[in-house]
Structures are given as structure tokens and as C-alpha cells.
Write a protein that binds this DNA or RNA. Structure first.
Lengths: 195, 195
DNA sequence: ACGCCGATCCGGCGTTTGTCGGAGGGCGCG
DNA sequence: CGCGCCCTCCGACAAACGCCGGATCGGCGT
């Protein structure tokens, strides 16, 4: 339930203050002060969210260099924090996968709220389902049935909701499988959500 | 297979040129010139990607106003394009869900490559699976089994890969179900990928 | 040492799933 | 009209699933 947050901030006092504030608000927060420690942390354990200061130990772009690894490779939703936001930095943050930019000074409460928001986000996979089903070239009925199957319903439950016979639903599901090139519910899910 | 792209650009010539270029490169591209038309387009049909000019018909932030609707509500990965990038605009684009900022002038090929990249992205749900399994508090063996089940494998296939009996695997799967509060493979998928 | 827990295995039972063949009705198009 | 497509339903069957009781084994704690 509690999300794991990686905090990368070189100022010792600010780092510990923020880390404590986040922990008090229900996050499991690991705090590091430099690029190398951040890499070690993500390699050792999984994280849901990250907060990264752009400038680390005088290096003007150390935080930005972490973005590809955190955001792209590991799919960690990342907030970038900085005192001096110029176009080049913000643009790079955006283009390298950051999800939010927070300018210092900011309150711990502000950051916590933002993280809660990012946490809730990505909790809706409906658009991905719709896209996958559309690309399979299904008929209307097949799409409706597939939608419900992908919600975890059994053929009998779908039949009740759609006002059909269970056998009919099984037929539709079977044809959905054929069009998606799969042969079981599990494979259909994996077709929609590859990994 | 072909992704649907919404192009929002007020300059008629640039819009049609880009639209043609994208279509030639395999995208299904719908091009509109103002905010209202963009809203109508996304309401009428689903899109995978969007390209939005920040400035529309003299309105300095019309494109940015579309971001919450496109990116957040509908989960459309959106590229923002602009001739004059200032900190405020780029920051707002980032904070409202844009995935990339492209500064004019740019080539059609550049945009197409970028869209292809965004298209490929979000094709890996492994991090989401790991997060969901971790939060369920599973044992090592249960996690390993769950991972394979979520890849679409049957109990027998998992048993072969893990060197266990099929019955044993079914036991593990059963306990995974209990810990996740579900009672079927389909429900387990829907537990990991809510919608 | 004893108990507890996790991992491993077995047999079995009822249910669900996925597929096959067959059969009808509606609807649009050449 | 006939043809194709979509939706609908049925019976049947093998496979997979989910769960039950019961069993062994090793580690770990007090």
C-alpha cells in the first residue's frame, strides 16, 4: 500500500527534513545525496516514485542525468526540483521523462500532495485497453464482451450483464482470441499489457 | 497497428504539410486548427498520440489548455510544439502531462521519429507488475509463480519452468489469489491493471 | 524439543474454459 | 435474388482451473 519514494537531494538538511516529512505522511522514503548513491539505490530495491534535485554537488545537470534511468528504464514517476529553472533544464527534464517540476522554495506538504497525486495516477488502464481492442479489429459486440472479460468477469457473468446465453459469450470470447492471436484469457491480458 | 495521431496546429500550410508527412509514414493522422475542433475530435474518436501547438489563433496558451484533457483524462501521449519556449510555458506543459517539447523549426521526419518512439514506449508493463506483486506481500516463490502466470502461462507451463509439480504451482497460485483478494487469473490481472 | 511456517507433493472433485460442429435470423450490397 | 457478415443459440468434449484434505520435509524461534 505505502509507495516507496527515492529522494535525491545534496543538501543534507533539506534532504533529511523532506525525508522525515514524507515518512510522516505515509511514504516509505529512501534519501540519498549524490548520483552514484541514487543508482545504487534503484538497483538494489524497487521504487514507485522519485524526487530529484537537478543540481547535485555543484554538478548542474547531475539530477537530469538520472532521468533516463529512473523514468524510462524503470518506469519510476519522477518529480524534478530546482531553485533556478531555465528553459534548457526544464525542456530536458520534460524530454527525458520527468512528470513534474517543482521550483524551490516549496513546502514539504506541497511535495507530499504532489506525490500522492502521482501515486493515484497511472491507476487507470482503460485507455490502454481501448487502444488494444481497437487495433484488434473487433466487432461492436466482441469489443463489449472483451471489455468485460478484461475486467475479470467470467463468461457467465458477462452473459448476465449483456443479456445473452453463456455459450454465445463463449463464442464471442473465442473469436476475440482468434483476432488477437491468443488462446486463453491470460494470454489476452498479456496481449493488452505486454511485459 | 497504425497509431491514430491528433495534430492541432493553426497554420493551415504547416498543418497540412505535417499531416501528409505523418500519413506517409504510416500514422493515421487527423488534423485540426483550433481548440474546439480538437475537443470535438477526441470526443468523437480515440487517439493514441497528439501533437499540439502551444499558440493557436493568437491565443498564447490555447494548446496548453488542451493538455489536461488529452494527456490526463484520455491518456494520450502528447508532444507540444512551439516557436518561442519560455520557462513558464515549458513548465506548464510538463506539469500538465506533456511527454515531449519540440521547438520550431523542426523537420517532419524529426516529429515522425519522435512519435514512433512514443508509440513504442509504454509497451512495457513489467514495473507495474513488480509494484503490484510487492504490495501484495508475497513470498519469493509465490512472486516467481505470479510473474509467470501474469505472462500468460498455464500452471503446467509454470511447473515445467520452475521445476515443480503442476499441483504445487496450483497451490502457490491459489495462495497468491488469497493474498491479493481475488479468486481467478482474470481477477488477478484486473487487480494488477485496474480499470 | 516442540511448535509453527513455508515449500513441496499427491489425489480427487466440481466448475470453468476453449473449441468443435451445427443451425437459425437479420442486414446490406452487388 | 444470393452472398457475406454479424449476432444468436445449442450440445458435447477435452483441457485447464480452483479448491479441498492430507502428507512430508527443513528451518526458525522461545
Amino acid at each position: 500500500m505505502t509507495s516507496r519514494v527515492l529522494l535525491v537531494e545534496d543538501d543534507d538538511e533539506a534532504r533529511e527534513t523532506l525525508a522525515r516529512a514524507l515518512r510522516r505522511r505515509g511514504f516509505e522514503c529512501e534519501a540519498v545525496g549524490d548520483e552514484a548513491a541514487a543508482r545504487a539505490a534503484v538497483a538494489a530495491a524497487p521504487f514507485d516514485l522519485a524526487v530529484v534535485d537537478v543540481v547535485l554537488r555543484g554538478d548542474e545537470t547531475a539530477g537530469l542525468r538520472l532521468l533516463p534511468e529512473l523514468a524510462r528504464e524503470r518506469g519510476i514517476r519522477t518529480v524534478v526540483i530546482t531553485a533556478f529553472a531555465d528553459v534548457a533544464k526544464v525542456k530536458r527534464a520534460l524530454n527525458d521523462g520527468a512528470r513534474y517540476l517543482l521550483e524551490k522554495p516549496f513546502g514539504a506538504a506541497e511535495l507530499a500532495d504532489l506525490l500522492h497525486q502521482l501515486q493515484a495516477e497511472e491507476g487507470d488502464f482503460a485507455p490502454i485497453v481501448e487502444r488494444a481492442l481497437r487495433k484488434a479489429g473487433l466487432t461492436e459486440k466482441e469489443t463489449a464482451v472483451a471489455r468485460l472479460v478484461l475486467k475479470g468477469l467470467t463468461s457467465a457473468e458477462v452473459a448476465r450483464l449483456e443479456g445473452n446465453s453463456e455459450k454465445t459469450v463463449r463464442q464471442h470470447v473465442s473469436r476475440v482470441f482468434a483476432k488477437c492471436g491468443v488462446s486463453s484469457r491470460a494470454e489476452l491480458f498479456h496481449y493488452v499489457f505486454p511485459s
